[in-house]
Amino acid sequence: MKQDSKRDLFPGALELMVLHTLVLEPLHGYALATRIRQRSQNLLQVEEEGSLYPALQRLLKAGFVQARWEMSATNRRVRTYSLTRKGSRHLAKETARLDSMMLGIQLVLSPLPGRQS
């Protein structure tokens, strides 16, 4: 239970990050985990890298990403995930929703006038 709350900032956040990371190029699991950590400047790291895989399967099932087995640069057989059109539409919609939600949270959490101590 503890793991879950730590892993996901909010339900679906990891999936959203994965989708966003895939916008630039198709990646395999390990690369995805590394990329997410780098991009968040280590602030947000996928707490347990293992939790990436259920998220990827959820996205596959929803049809937001597709997977293909390929040979990597280091000559390994890897499963590469790429964004589908449906996935990018979903990403755009969710990002917009997230932005407005963030704005709302910021407004609520901003310091209250006259109560500064």
Partner: peptide, 8 residues
């Protein structure tokens, strides 16, 4: 999945 995770 096994293969993917081991590879990771």
């Amino acid at each position: 999945l096994q293969e993917e995770i081991e590879s990771h």
